[in-house]
Design a protein around this nucleic acid. Structure first.
Length: 573
RNA sequence: CGGGGCGUGGCGCAGUCUGGUAGCGCACUACAAUGGGGUUGUAGGGGUCGAAGGUUCGAAUCCUUUCGCCCCGACCA
């Protein structure tokens, strides 16, 4: 591609709206332009990257024998009524009407449509298992779109759905898809990790997420340094800590703590060691619980895991924290002064809290804390559970190694749906036994447009994007120096360009007659992995200059046989 | 939805407090010089200051309403 025939939309300045690196760089390199909140145009440059990601995804899915199709983006409300999701999906569902006033939505996902298709077309177990997929624009009316295409409202997604006669078949395809996903993300050239995930409201027994690792990622993942264990932090179980309850060493005493309303203030103002403090969190109780509220205890330096808390039978799900007023009327003290001693509410303690001794907690009286609290002696040992987020250094739940934490960007998610949708929509087939069987389903998503942003988030520097080769918009940039004046430079560049094209190289030939600095900056901003410079200087020595996006120094390639030398560099990556 | 901020040429901004008829940098056009890391000069084009209403002799500026966008939070099969 010649630059003169390919519009670049690079900018020197960053639009004020861009907060994170990938968004800034996508705007500056001219890959995307915003139309309105959460909705973007992909420019020719941006689309090249998107298409490369798409091609990898498609290729691996096709190889696995899954069938590409294309379903409608606009879907009738009746279908969504069948699964109850017209209401349940909430504000994220973009609802629209046609001229007759009939309700439709712009598809945020396609379980309903694909299940409808399958229940109409698939009659027999002999046609199973089958997996359909599509790569299509989705729309989810996010409460707060942000970070450019990272969390856009309109985005490109690969969604796949598998159908099975039974659970075993679904399980088999699920793990097959897990491998396919691993191959896909490996091929993109990105550093990624698959983790156990919460299957959430969609239900189902198995779920994994695939994360591109990046320090700016919004998700935290925990993994063992010695085994394959890896999990989304919200799901990572904390092993029961070893050890026994120590004998009390201190006396229980009340301390006036007028300036301590948080753990930090308790530590800094009153000399409490943070690992000797406990946080008392009041949440709404489950309907069947006799009390209105439940107290949850975690160590002062730990973070309550809301997902784990909501799973407790005593606790309302989803988790709801009690308001300050609720707490005051139930306990008679404010949130900064709560503790287990003398508390007349059901209490659940994190398993680690049960092993604490001589600890500090609120006295359920404003501006007072107990110091030197010990279980049994001062207050009954409560029920215990795993309530906190894992932290780096925790024992791995599988008993092998210790946990480490990393940040990730979720780019893929696979689920075993089971019969949730097929039952609601009466999607059945005849089995070998001559009877109707409700279909088992799996669903599998990849955020294609998000991968592009995640790739940049993982691979960039102060100059711009550093594309992994497999998804770079161009493999190689060819830059002639001062070609306007130098006919031999131009001639050499033209010739090499022709040879590269002939050899099938995805080359970007900057024939814009710009000053070198401008070209260098553009090419580095766009992040093309390889660069060849042709100038008078080099021609005098029979050489070309070569460097990779990551290099800090140029190297030389012979002008004679340049094509072969370049191809070798491209091969080597 | 709650809290905060911003809307002035394509982009980044000043001007708003204290009303006087719109400015800077980048980008763009033409010409010239320059030519290995965002080059310089000269001359240009482009904005009903988000929108509507009001106050005033006069509104980017003051008042009211409204729309959009961004950030934090809640939310995120």
């Amino acid at each position: 591609m010649k630059a003169s025939a390919f519009h670049l939309f690079t900018t020197r300045e960053t639009p004020a709206e861009a907060e994170i690196a990938s968004h800034r760089l996508m705007l500056r390199s001219g890959m995307i332009r915003k139309l309105t909140s959460g909705i973007y145009t992909w420019t020719p440059m941006g689309l090249r990257v998107l298409r490369k990601v798409e091609a990898i995804v498609r290729d691996e899915l096709d190889k696995a024998g899954y069938l590409e199709m294309l379903m409608p983006a606009v879907q009738p409300a009746e279908l969504w009524d069948e699964t109850g999701r017209w209401e349940k999906f909430g504000g994220q569902l973009l609802k629209i009407q046609d001229r007759a006033g009939r309700d439709y939505c712009f598809g945020p996902t396609h379980e309903e449509v694909v299940t409808d298709f399958v229940r109409n077309e698939i009659r027999s177990y002999k046609q199973l298992p089958v997996t359909f997929y599509q790569i299509q624009t989705k729309f989810r009316d996010e409460i707060r779109p942000r970070f450019g295409v990272m969390r856009a409202r309109e985005f490109l997604m690969k969604d796949a759905y598998s159908f099975h006669i039974d659970h075993a078949s679904m399980d088999e395809t699920y793990w097959e898809m897990y491998e396919v996903y691993s191959r896909i993300f490996t091929r993109t050239g990105l550093r990624f990790r698959s983790v156990e995930a919460d299957s959430g409201a969609i239900g189902g027994s198995q779920s994994h997420e695939f994360h591109v690792l990046a320090d700016s990622g919004e998700d935290l993942i925990a993994f063992s340094d010695q085994s394959d264990y890896a999990s989304n932090l919200e799901l990572a179980t904390v092993a029961k800590p070893p050890g026994n309850l120590a004998a009390p060493a201190e006396k229980l005493r009340v301390v006036d703590t007028p300036d301590a309303h948080t753990i930090d203030e308790l530590v800094s103002g009153y000399g409490a060691a943070i690992e000797k403090t406990i946080k008392t969190l009041i949440v709404h109780a489950a309907g069947e619980c006799e009390a209105d509220f439940v107290a949850l205890l975690v160590r002062g330096d730990r973070v309550l895991n809301e997902l784990k808390a909501a799973r407790l039978e005593q606790v309302a799900s989803p988790l709801r924290f009690a308001s300050d007023e609720d707490i005051r009327s139930a306990i008679g003290a404010g949130p900064g002064s709560l503790g287990p001693v003398g508390l007349e509410l059901p209490v659940v303690a994190d398993q680690e809290v049960a092993l604490m001794s001589d600890f500090v907690a609120g006295a359920n009286s404003d501006n007072k804390h107990y110091f030197g609290i010990n279980w049994s002696r001062d207050v009954d040992l409560p029920v215990t559970a795993d309530l906190r987020n894992a932290v780096a250094g925790d024992l791995s739940p599988d008993g092998q190694g210790n946990l480490q934490l990393a940040r990730g960007i979720e780019v893929g998610h696979i689920f075993q749906l089971g019969t949730a949708y097929s039952e609601a929509m009466n999607a059945v087939v005849l089995g070998e036994d001559g009877k109707s069987h409700v279909l088992h389903m799996g669903c599998y998503g990849i955020g294609v447009s998000r991968i592009v942003a995640a790739a940049i988030e993982q691979n960039h520097d102060e100059r711009g994007i550093i594309w992994p080769e497999p998804i770079a918009p161009f493999q190689l940039a060819l830059l002639p120096m001062n070609a306007k004046k130098s006919h031999r430079v131009r001639a050499a560049a033209d010739q090499l360009y022709a040879e590269l094209l002939e050899a099938g190289v995805d080359v970007f030939y900057d024939d814009r007659n710009l000053r070198p600095g401008v070209m260098f900056n553009d090419i580095e901003l766009i992040g093309i992995p390889h660069r060849v410079v042709i100038g008078e200087r080099g021609l005098d020595n029979g050489a070309l200059e070569y460097r990779q996006r990551n290099d800090t120094e140029n190297s030389e390639l012979p002008l004679e046989g340049a094509l072969a030398a370049i191809l070798e560099k491209l091969q080597a990556g």
